[in-house]
Amino acid sequence: MTEGSPAPVLRAFRRRDLRAMPGFKAMAWLCIIALYMPLAVLIIFSFNDNRSVVRWTEFSLDWYAKALANDGIRNAALVSVKIALFATVISTVVATMAALATTRTRGFRGQGLVYGIINQPLMIPEIVTAIATLSLFALIKRLTGVTGVGYLMMAHAAFCIPFAYMPIRARLETMTLTMEQAAADLYATPLKAFALITLPLLGPGIVSGAMLAFVVSLDDVIITLLVAGPGETTLPIYILGAIRRGITPEINAVSTILVAVSVLLVVLLFFVQRRMQR
């Protein structure tokens, strides 16, 4: 005691307690503000009874009513959800098969390369992928004359694959092969072992992958902007167009709804995972 107590920094360091370090709180608040302040502003002004998105007057739900009554927005939302659902189903199925093939087999040469190839959309700048996709589709259209929303759906399904793949593979890597062997040992045919053991255990990974794919598809701008044909306006594209005509709280309202949907999905995902991983 006579030596005097050490400085708080040292004490925190010795206890390995980061939270007691000076400046911890300030840093934490800074991060939270950087992450959520813009969203807070967006959401607050979506309830503004005024055309301005910088000057607050009074609370109102007018902009939500307007947004929901706007045919342009409703159509765009419908297109977005349709494309996202399609992309989610296709990319999740493909990603599940890819994840099984890259983890449920004996290690093979070039496995790392395969991971890289599957994750291509994460590494190549999206604008490049967008232009490449556009070129390919233009070529196909010229050769076959086929047009339609199918191109946009396929493009979305493709770039969603790595996002669906990552959580599924992560889940598979924590599952030892012993489970399937135990099933086989107990007379389950390979098909039954897959359906009754592998698939249920993989469930949380597949659900995470699907939700991630859905959100990524819903959110995409660049590829959609280049690939989408006339009448294939998704919600982000609509918002982008609307902003060019001048930003109004209506855009804030639509964006807030998007935020709410995303948060809802994440919360749902959290509960699904907790239930299934018990």
Binding site: M179, Q181, A184, D185, T189
Partner: peptide, 20 residues
Amino acid sequence: LPPHRRPVNTVFQSYALFPH
């Protein structure tokens, strides 16, 4: 014969119980 057609059963070191 594949494992599911052999009339032998195994107690695994890790038990390998089905968690679900």
